[in-house]
Design a protein around this nucleic acid. Structure first.
Lengths: 219, 219, 219, 219
DNA sequence: GATGAATGAGTTTTCATTCAT
DNA sequence: AATGAATGAAAACTCATTCAT
C-alpha cells in the first residue's frame, strides 16, 4: 500500500506521486479530487458488476458525474480502473473472509466463506469474468485474487486438523470450486433464482465431507 | 436438418438452398467449396475455442486461407458462423452423450457423460462463454444447448430408478454443475493440468451420491 | 446495330465478335446462349424496373436461372447490362412513339406520346433514375435516351405547323417536362394512384396550349 | 425543438442532453465543438447537395477537417446527419415560404413560392432524392417535408378565394408539381442553364391558370 | 485540476467482378 | 459455354485514449 500515508488513496494510481521529491512538501490532495475518485470507483464498481468489463468508459464517467479527463487522471487506463475496483472488492472480501475463517467452527467457517463468496460472484459480472481471464497470470488483477489464497489455505488447514474435510483436498481445489460455483451463481442470478446455486453449493460441500475417502486424482 | 438429403452438408448455411426446386437435379457441391467450407469451420472452431467469440473475423478468414467474401458466402454473419461451429460441437456431443447414456450402468453413464462434457469445455472458450450468454434465452445458439437436456433428464431418471443418485437432484442441477465444472475445466486447461478439473468432478460426483440424504434447498 | 446480321443479338456485347477474323466461318450462336441472353434481359428488366439500378447482380442471375459467369459473359459489366435493358426499353418506346407521332392529329399525338411515356416511367425505377444520372453525358446509356429526341422534335414541329402548340416551345422543353412528369408518375405509382400524375400531365398540357402567348424565358 | 432553450443548438443531436438536470447550470458549448459541428454540417450539406445521400461519410469528415469520431459524436448515424442537413434546409425554406405566402397577392405568392422552391432543389441532389425516397412515409426526414404542406395549402386556398387558380387544383397537386419541377431544375442546373427550368415552371403556372376550366381527372 | 470534445485504428458486412471447375 | 464460388476493396460505425479549453 504505497500511498497509505495519505490516508485517502490506498490503491491504484496516485497522480501526485511523481511530484514527491526529496524534501518536498507533500500537500494534501484537494477535497474534490478525493470526492471524484470515490464517485468514479463507485460508478465503475456498479457498471463492471452489472455489465461486465466491457462497459463503455464514458458510461462510467457519466454516471460518476465527472469528465473523461478526470477519470483518466485518476486511472490512466481502463484496465487499471477495473483492477482497482476488483482490488477493493477483493480487499473487502478478504477482510470478511478472515472474519469468517476465525470466528466459527471449521466446517461452518468453510461453508460460510463459500456462501459469502458465491453471493458476491452472483452479482458481479466482471469479477467472474476476470477469474477466467487472469487465471494463469500473476500480475495485474490476478494479484488481488491471490490475496484470498492464504485465507482459503488457512481454512483448509483448520478443517483438516479438525477432521471435517475430505482428505487430500487442497486450497487450490477450493479456489477452483469457488470459480465454478461462482459461474453457477451468476447464471442462477440472471434467472433471479438464488436457490439454484445453493443446491449446487450443497452438493459440492457434501462431496467435500470426510465420509468420502476415495483419493482425488493426482499425478 | 433441412439439407440432410444431400448427404454432404448437414449443418449451417446452405447458400444455394433456394435453387433447389421441385425435381431439379441437385448437383454435388464443388470440391473447392467443400474444402473452403471445411477450412473455414476448422479455422473458426480453433479461433473460437482459443480466443473466444470475440475473435476478428478477418483472422478466421486469413487462417482459413480464404477471402472475406468466401467466409461470408458460407456464413452470412459472424453469429451464424459461431452458431454453426457450436452446433456441430453440440451435435457431436449430443451423439456421444446418447451413447454414453445408454450403454452402461446408470452411475457410470452419468459420470462418463460429465467427464466427456468437461473434456469438451476444457478446450473451448466460446463454448463456455455461450453457456453464460445464452442461459436465459431460447433461440439461436441456445437451441442446440437444449438438445442436451433430454439426454441429461434421461440419465437423471435412470439413475434415480436405480437408486444411485441423491434424491431430489434434477436435470437442471446437473446442467448447472456442467456449466460450473466446465469453467473449472477451462481454467485448469489453461494451466495445462487436466487433473485439476477431475478432482472437482470427483467432488461433485461424490456430493451427488445417494448417501447424502439431506434435502437440497428449494422454494 | 453492329451484329444485326446474326438476327439474334441487336444490342450489347457480342461474345463472339472478336473471333470473327478475315475469312473465318461465322458460326451461329448456340441456342442455349440465345435463350440465356433472353432470360437475363428479362430478369434484369424486371429487377431494374422494380428495385432500381441498385439491385444485386446475383439476384438478376438467380431469377434468370443462370450463373454469374453466364451473365458476365453476355454483359461484361453491370452498367452494360443496365444500358442494354434501357436501350431495349427505349427502342420499343421509340417505336411506339413513332407510331403515335404519325398516326393522329398533332395535338392528340403529343398528348398520347406523353401519356405513354409517363405510364412507362411510372413503372420503371431505373429508367427514371438514369434520366438524372446521365442527363449531361452523351455516351453510354444516354445515347438511347437521345433516340427519342427526333420523335419529340418531329412532334413539336408538326404541332407548331398546325398551330396547336404554344409558340416558342422546343423539343428540349418537352423532354424536360417528360422527366419531371416522369418523376411525378413514379411517386404517384408508389401510392398506387395513377390519377395523380394524370392531373399533373393535364396541367402541363394546358400550359402548352397556344392560348398562352407569353414568351417563355430565354437568354 | 427540444433544445431551443439553450439558444445555441436548435437542430440535431445534442450529445450532452442527458446531463442537463433539473436546475443544473447549462454551460455554453465549447467553441471548438461549435466550430466543428458547423464545419461538419457545412461539409455534409455540400457533399449531400453535390453527390447525393450516397456520399462516403469519411469524405464528409475529411472535408470538414475532423475525425470520424467527431462526426459521429455530433451525428450518431449517417441518416441523422442527412436528416439534420435537410431539416435545416426545410426549416429555412419553410420560413421563406411563409414570407412569400403572406406578403404578396396570391398568384404572385404562389409563383414566388415555386420559384424559390425550384432554386433550392436545383442545387441539392439529396433534397430531390429524399422527396422520392420518403414520399410515402410519415416519419424521419419526411416530417420536415410535411412542414411545407400547410404553407402550400394556405397558398392554394388564398388563390382559390381570389379566383386566380384553376378550379379543382389541390395542395397535393402543387406538391407533386414541386417534385417534378424540382427534378427538372436539378437536371437543368447540371447543364448550368437555369433558364431551362424557368420555362417549365412557366408552362406549369400557365396550366394552373383559371382560364383552364376543364376538370382535372379524379376518381 | 476538471471538462468533454476529438481522435482514428479497428470491426463487421456488402457486392461488382474474376476465375477455377 | 456455363456455373457459382472466391475475391477484396469499400463503407458505416465504436470506443479507449489524448488534449485543447
Amino acid at each position: 500500500m504505497r500511498s497509505g500515508r495519505y490516508g485517502w488513496s490506498s490503491l491504484g494510481y496516485d497522480p501526485d506521486m511523481d511530484k514527491v521529491a526529496e524534501g518536498a512538501v507533500v500537500r494534501a490532495p484537494r477535497s474534490d479530487a478525493v470526492r471524484n475518485r470515490a464517485s468514479i470507483l463507485k460508478a465503475a464498481s456498479h457498471a463492471f458488476a452489472t455489465q461486465g468489463s466491457g462497459v463503455d468508459v464514458r458510461e462510467i464517467a457519466r454516471s460518476a458525474g465527472v469528465g473523461m479527463g478526470t477519470l483518466y487522471r485518476h486511472f490512466p487506463t481502463k484496465d487499471l480502473l477495473l483492477e482497482t475496483v476488483l482490488r477493493e472488492h477483493f480487499a473487502e472480501w478478504t477482510r470478511t473472509a478472515w472474519d469468517a475463517a476465525t470466528d466459527q467452527d471449521p466446517a461452518e467457517a468453510l461453508s460460510a466463506f463459500l456462501y459469502d463468496a458465491l453471493e458476491r460472484q452472483a452479482n458481479h459480472r466482471a469479477l467472474v469474468e476476470q477469474f477466467a481471464e487472469t487465471w494463469d497470470t500473476t500480475e495485474g488483477i490476478a494479484t488481488c485474487r491471490r490475496e484470498l489464497h492464504p485465507v482459503i489455505d488457512g481454512l483448509v488447514a483448520r478443517c483438516h486438523d479438525a477432521g471435517v474435510l475430505r482428505p487430500g483436498v487442497t486450497g487450490e481445489d477450493i479456489s477452483l470450486l469457488l470459480v465454478g460455483l461462482g459461474r453457477i451463481a451468476q447464471l442462477a442470478s440472471v434467472q433471479g433464482d438464488p436457490l439454484l446455486w445453493r443446491r449446487a453449493l450443497q452438493i459440492a460441500l457434501d462431496g467435500l465431507q470426510p465420509i468420502h475417502r476415495e483419493e482425488l486424482p493426482s499425478d
